[in-house]
Design a protein around this nucleic acid. Sequence first.
DNA 1: CTTCAGATTATCT
DNA 2: GATAATCTGAAGT
Length: 203
Amino acid sequence: MARHSWTVARSSNSAGSRRLSRRFFDRPTVTVARDLLGAILRNGPRAVQIVETEAYVTNDPASHTFRGPTRRNRSMFGEPGTLYVYRIHQVVCANLVTRRGEAVLLRAGEPLTPGLPSPSGPGRLCRALGISLADDGVRTPTDPRIRVDSRQDGRRSIAVGPRVGIRRAARRPLRFALKGNRWVSRPAVVGNRRRSPRGPNRA
DNA sequence: CTTCAGATTATCT
DNA sequence: GATAATCTGAAGT
């Protein structure tokens, strides 16, 4: 290969970081969920590093698209990289669409902007970044304000475990987190967790 | 129209 | 660990 010395712009701001393209998101959802760990989510001047994600896939009873298109999940059928924002109780949560009807829930981030409120938890992440329902449908590969940039440092160890806060199909290992990161919303699953013999009420 | 459950979080014991 | 808050989307009548 040519010996050209790459003129790597070392701006202290976004050195080596590039915006994740539509192509990045147009891959299997689990792959995207893993690869998003360490990526940078920006809304204008505010930024976090993504440290925890969950995959919601086709034929997944826990997915909002399980029963087909509705008004709420419309943007989950948008092009890869589209932001799907929904409301749950008094907060909003954000997803990045991968393939048609599939998406990655952004569960936690590590603050990169000084003074940012805690982004640990899907609702808190949106609040910290100022993401609202009005941002539903934003196309992050091209949007001027909300964007996702590639990670700058190398890949780190990833913890995998069951998803959080859902009843149906919760045990599928579709939750991913940067191992040991303090901003993960709940402790990363290390091994099998012993269950109490007497479970909660069952129907 | 009515009913119901929820991809959460803060706060309590 | 358990629960109320709080309100909308979606499904049922």
